[in-house]
């Protein structure tokens, strides 16, 4: 029975370590933010998140995140079909490039975008003449957000596409279904949960993005300010209540996303 006692002890020790780690890094900080936000009741919170600036930041955040997620969904489906179903020169390169955003710091990505689309560069200058401003405007923020959330949909879809194989699609072809019909009736239903999970991940990443957007947006208050940028600004202006309140809003969005993710995931198994 000594052996059993040791195993039980080890088990408890491991649990304690894991819980402590989570507590220090996650539960305590997030809990403190919630506590600070609501310590004087609900109305300061409500007041802080309904200011004109905060609401505008929310709108900008949603616009940027949703546009980027739609773009990455379309790109993600196309790229994963390409990677799984087709052999072509440069496939390994494409595969590696898709993971690049995970390795590159978002700030660096933002700077790189300025180097391409900034007003003093050929591309940026030309676009400016056409009346399209990329940097310090929504298009740049969308591109930056697309960049950081690029791999998420692809990495969810590739293993599922590999697993389902091509026989169902081929069977559909022999039954007369065209390529678009086959995609809509056979492929899409087969990948739907993985796709939903990938979209939720990409959306969550897009909503919380700070670094790349901070660089390309110019942080123009009331114009290109997202929620994360708003939090930073309020904090630096010593409006802690405002910063905490909007943080709580972001945290709540994250919790909803988390719930959505756990809803999608088990159905996949």
């Amino acid at each position: 029975m000594v052996g059993a006692a040791v195993t039980t002890k080890t088990k408890w020790a491991l649990r304690l370590v894991a819980l402590l780690y989570l507590a220090l890094l996650l539960i305590v900080p997030v809990g403190l933010i919630f506590w600070r936000t609501f310590q004087h009741g609900f109305s300061p919170f409500w007041h802080s998140i309904t200011t004109h600036e905060a609401l505008h930041a929310l709108r900008v955040t949603l616009e940027v995140a949703i546009t980027a997620t739609v773009l990455n969904t379309v790109f993600g489906i196309t790229a994963s079909l390409l990677i799984v179903r087709h052999a072509f020169p440069g496939k390994r390169l494409l595969n590696a490039l898709i993971d690049l955003p995970l390795a590159v710091s978002p700030v660096v990505a933002g700077l790189a975008l300025i180097l391409i689309y900034g007003r003093l560069t050929p591309i940026g200058g030309w676009l400016g003449h056409q009346g399209v401003n990329v940097i310090f405007a929504l298009p740049g923020m969308v591109i930056a957000t697309v960049f950081v959330s690029l791999p998420l949909v692809v990495r969810e879809l590739v293993p599922v596409l590999e697993e389902i194989g091509t026989e169902q699609e081929q069977a559909a072809w022999t039954l007369g279904a065209s390529a678009p019909q086959t995609f809509r009736r056979i492929t899409l239903p087969a990948i739907r949960w993985a796709l939903a999970y990938g979209i939720v991940l990409a959306l969550a990443r897009s909503l919380g993005e700070f670094g790349a957007v901070a660089v390309v947006s110019g942080k123009v208050v009331g114009q290109t300010q997202t929620l994360t940028l708003y939090v930073e600004q309020q904090y630096q202006n010593f409006d802690k209540t405002g910063a905490y309140a909007v943080s709580v809003m972001l945290a709540m969005i994250a919790i909803v996303t988390l719930i959505a993710m756990t809803l999608f995931r088990p159905k996949e198994r």
Binding site: E167, Q168, Q170, A171, W173, T174, A177, S178, P189, A190
Partner: peptide, 20 residues
């Protein structure tokens, strides 16, 4: 002709059932 227009019936070893 693409498979869609040959009007052949094809049965696969592993059934290729439409799972959903």
């Amino acid at each position: 002709l693409p498979p869609q227009r040959r009007n052949v019936g094809f049965v696969f070893q592993h059934y290729a059932a439409f799972k959903h």
